[in-house]
């Protein structure tokens, strides 16, 4: 049971806003966002009755159609349906919305404690003179991260996933409806700190940004290859700590490139600001021409 409103939405994610303790919205699968839309991309057609299967096989020869094999009263149906289809369809809807409004959406991924929020705290003030910025924060519990972003004066919403280990397209879809997004803006989606599960879930972002810090191992790209394989750029954070830790930057970069040779690479420190200008330049360029 939800401890805020007493409703039974105990398994879904909850949206919260900093400074508005009464505000919370449940993200429940089964609402209209999650309904089975048959528009664009659905691969099956049900405008027929089961009895017709034998004599109307031609109906099933279209792309992704069904083939039926009767065996007494049990019947095998070929679906060939992507397990993550529901998420992927919704992610494409999010992506279409972002494209139409020229919103550049970035999905920030890392293990907990690599400095995702600190990096946003540092880069947002540099950008939002020229570009509107909004943030979606993902965490299992608390609005701590959203509170930090709220202090910068940009729109932010917190998604609390409860027991969930990743954000999905439905949560982002709901969160976007609660955020006052502007055209030609940057949307930063800070995923739940986790280097495994979020890699599988498309949110509709333009690019995935994976962050690692020098206090982690330089073999991290090899240990969590799926994440690095899916990412478009990699940011190595906390480089101000390099004198104090055993971390081989060149080796880490090489490991990351072995997993994904398309990966763009940045090295910086959110604390001292070192290396931040290069990333800012890259972001501004992409914001103008994405």
């Amino acid at each position: 049971m939800c401890d805020t409103c007493g409703c039974s939405g105990d398994c879904g994610a909850v949206l919260r806003k900093p400074g508005e303790s009464d505000y919370h919205v449940h993200v429940n699968p089964g609402t209209e966002e999650h309904s089975h839309s048959h528009a664009g991309g659905e691969t099956h057609d049900h405008d027929h009755f089961p009895e017709e299967h034998h004599d109307r096989d031609y109906m099933h020869n279209h792309d992704g159609g069904h083939h039926h094999h009767h065996e007494g009263t049990s019947r095998k149906i070929v679906l060939e349906q992507d397990v993550l289809q529901q998420n992927n369809l919704l992610a494409e809807r999010n992506r279409g919305y972002f494209e139409a409004r020229n919103i550049f959406a970035l999905n920030f991924l890392s293990s907990p404690g690599s400095g995702k929020t600190s990096l946003l705290e540092k880069i947002i003030p540099l950008l939002h003179q020229r570009f509107p910025v909004a943030v979606i924060e993902g965490d299992q519990q608390t609005t701590n991260d959203a509170d930090r972003i709220h202090a910068l004066g940009v729109p932010v919403i917190q998604i609390n996933t409860g027991s969930g280990c990743h954000l999905d397209a439905l949560m982002v879809n709901r969160a976007v409806k609660e955020l006052d997004l502007q055209d030609n803006s940057l949307l930063c989606i800070e995923n739940v700190g986790n280097l495994v599960c979020p890699a599988l879930f498309d949110l509709g972002e333009a690019l995935k940004v994976v962050i690692i810090s020098v206090t982690e191992g330089d073999d991290k790209p090899l240990k969590y290859p799926t994440m690095f394989h899916e990412a478009d750029l990699c940011i190595l954070n906390k480089i101000d700590l390099l004198p104090y830790v055993e971390f081989d930057v060149a080796k880490c970069r090489e490991n990351a490139m072995r997993v994904n040779h398309h990966l763009e690479w940045f090295e910086l420190s959110a604390t001292t600001g070192e290396g931040l200008a290069q990333w800012q330049q890259w972001l501004e360029k992409r914001l103008l021409h994405h």
Binding site: S74, R75, K76, I77, V78, L79, E80, Q81, D82, V83, L84
Partner: peptide
């Protein structure tokens, strides 16, 4: 990562 068939 596909659901290939179901038997009903």
């Amino acid at each position: 990562f596909l659901i290939q068939t179901i038997t009903i």
